[in-house]
Design a binder for these strands. Structure first.
Length: 577
RNA sequence: CGGAGCGUAGCGCAGGGGUAGCGCACUUGCUUUGGGAGCAAGGGGUCGUAGGUUCAAAUCCUAUCGCUCCGACCA
């Protein structure tokens, strides 16, 4: 593209709402333009990167016999009513009525649509397995869109769906897509890990699911990772243990002590001069199932935190949330001094698995300014239920296959997700095939997503410097940024000639804008961050007849003749990818 | 949904009852050309919207809409 005729505008300053590097750089480099909250226009140069990501995805999925189709962005409400998600999706789904007062929605995802297509096309197990995918616009009315296209409301996603006659076949299909994802993100040049994840609302929590997380400081997700055992899991899901702790196993006397003004674990433990893991954290949670609400008292070591997702899984609830101050009062709890002993309220008490039930702990006495010390659960309470409730954290231990290591907590950006859905949707939407015995069965499904626009943002988040973006070669909008610094028409013509030469071999952005100073052009080149910059400067070329090549990533420069230009760039591009 | 802000030129911001401003960007001309050039001359605004107070409102008051940040939430 010739800039003198092209469409491109850069900015020295980023808008104030852009708080992370990828968002700031995408706006400053003229790749995207905000249209509304969480809604973006993709400008010509930015679109090229998105399309490159899409093409890499296509190439890799097509290798594994996945078939691309396109489903409608606007879908009829009936489909969602059939699966039951018209209600359960809630305000996340953007809805509308057409002129006939029929319900419509903008697809936040496409399980319903793809099952509908499947139902009308596939009748026999002999036609399975099959995997369909599309790369298409989604809309999710997020509570708080932010970080540019990283968490937009409208975004593009590759979503794939596989159908299988048996669970074994689903397992195989899942592995196939998992490996395709590894190839895709490797080609894009991302530093990623696949982590065990929580199935959330998509499944009932038993099926396998992995997230592909790009490691980046600004990531919204937390990942627990162990070098020694290779364990990697989303913190929502991670199961690790504490390093060895010195519990008080002397079975001291249970007694009430006055602990004025110590409503936090930290205050109590300072006051009692004991480590925090010798106190118990008592949390009252509301367990909500439809209209029903009950309460549970969850106990954790004083320096551990509750993982609400684990509590939710244990409770098999619609959702769980901390009891409100009012609810605590009604149950007879005193905020800051809650404990499992001498309970006034009838609530179920559960202990985290890391609590040594024979150890002695301090715990709230259920009255103002008082705690118990010497509370030994196995001695002082009946009916103890142990549950894995704690949130993993840095410094925990993970053991697997005879190996053991300390885990660390890192931030990640979720760019891909693979799920085993099972028969949830084929059942609810009554999709069947005939098996070998002529019996109608619900096939098993897998679903697999990649946020394409988010992937571009993640790549920038991972690869930039103070001057701008540093594109991985595979998704750079162009390979070569060719800039001329000319004074005479003679050199403008030479520039055009070189552009034609480069164009035959590479994707080239030609900065032929007249009358712009070198500094201006260099700043723009660094900001956009194409892998290779080539400069024809009239001043220098008059002296040595050479061209300057600069590698964006390493800042190395080379001076080469016209004859060597193409081969040198090829060599550098290969080295960079 | 809780808390906190902001809406003034394309972007970044100042002004705070009495003439609509600055920097960047944009247009024209001349000079400049190896790290966001200089000079000169320009274009661009119903100060988010609607009411109110006032001789007079961008400015004060009320409502409303939009946007953002922190948190909660979240395929």
């Amino acid at each position: 593209m010739r800039l003198s005729k092209g469409f491109w505008q850069t900015y020295k300053e980023a808008p104030t709402d852009a708080t992370i590097p990828s968002h700031q750089l995408m706006v400053r480099a003229g790749l995207i333009h905000k249209s509304g909250a969480g809604i973006y226009n993709y400008l010509p140069i930015g679109l090229r990167s998105i399309q490159k990501v899409e093409n890499i995805i296509r190439e890799e999925l097509n290798k594994d016999d996945c078939y691309e189709l396109t489903m409608s962005v606007v879908t009829p409400g009936e489909l969602w009513q059939e699966s039951g998600r018209w209600d359960s999706m809630g305000p996340l789904m953007l809805r509308a009525k057409d002129r006939g007062n029929r319900d419509l929605c903008i697809s936040p995802t496409n399980e319903e649509a793809v099952v509908d297509i499947f139902k009308k096309s596939i009748k026999s197990y002999k036609q399975l397995p099959v995997t369909l995918y599309q790369i298409n616009t989604k809309f999710r009315d997020e509570i708080r869109p932010r970080f540019g296209v990283m968490r937009g409301r409208e975004f593009t996603m590759k979503d794939a769906y596989s159908f299988h006659a048996s669970w074994e076949c689903l397992e195989k299909g899942y592995q196939t897509l998992y490996r395709a994802y590894e190839r895709i993100f490797t080609r894009i040049g991302l530093n990623f890990i696949a982590v065990e994840a929580d199935a959330g609302a998509m499944a009932d929590g038993k099926q396998k699911t992995h997230e592909f997380q790009v490691l980046a400081r600004s990531g919204e997700d937390k990942v627990i990772f162990c070098k020694e055992t290779g364990y990697a899991a989303n913190i929502e899901r991670a199961e690790t243990s504490r390093e060895k702790l010195d519990f008080d196993l002397s079975s001291p006397e249970l007694k009430e002590v006055s602990t004025p003004g110590t409503a936090t674990i930290e205050d109590v433990c300072n006051f009692l001069k004991q480590p925090q893991h010798r106190s118990l954290k008592s949390l009252v949670y509301s367990i909500i199932n439809g209209e029903e609400e009950e309460f549970v008292l969850a106990l954790l070591l004083g320096d551990d935190d509750l993982n609400e997702i684990k509590l939710n899984l244990w409770a098999k609830a619609d959702h769980v949330k901390p009891a409100t101050d009012n609810q605590l009062n009604q149950l007879g709890f005193v905020k800051g001094y809650i404990g499992p002993y001498d309970l006034k309220a009838k609530v179920k008490v559960i202990f985290d698995k890391e609590i040594n039930l024979d150890g002695a702990y301090s715990t709230g006495a259920n009255k103002d300014d008082a705690h118990f010390t010497g509370f030994v659960p196995s001695r002082d309470l009946k009916d103890i239920e142990k549950v894995d409730l704690r949130l993993s954290k840095s410094g925990d231990i993970h053991k697997a296959d005879g190996k053991e290591g300390v885990v660390e907590e890192i931030s990640g950006i979720e760019v891909g997700h693979v799920f085993q859905l099972g028969d949830k949707y084929t059942k609810s939407m009554n999709a069947t095939v005939l098996d070998q015995n002529g019996k109608a069965v619900n096939p098993f499904m897998g679903c697999y997503g990649i946020g394409t626009t988010r992937t571009v943002a993640a790549a920038i988040e991972q690869s930039h410097d103070e001057d701008g973006i540093i594109w991985p070669v595979t998704i750079a909008p162009y390979h070569v940024h060719f800039a001329t610094i000319t004074k005479t028409s003679e050199y403008e013509e030479l520039g055009d000639e070189i552009y034609d030469l480069l164009k035959e071999n590479f994707e080239v952005l030609y900065d032929d804008r007249p009358k712009l100073g070198p500094g201006f052009k260099f700043k723009d080149a660094d900001l956009l961050g194409l892998p290779i910059r080539v400069v024809l400067g009239e001043r220098d070329h008059k002296k040595d007849s050479l061209f300057e090549i600069k590698v964006r990533k390493t800042k190395e420069t080379f001076k080469v003749s016209k004859e060597d230009l193409i081969s040198k760039i090829k060599e550098l591009l290969e080295g960079a990818s």
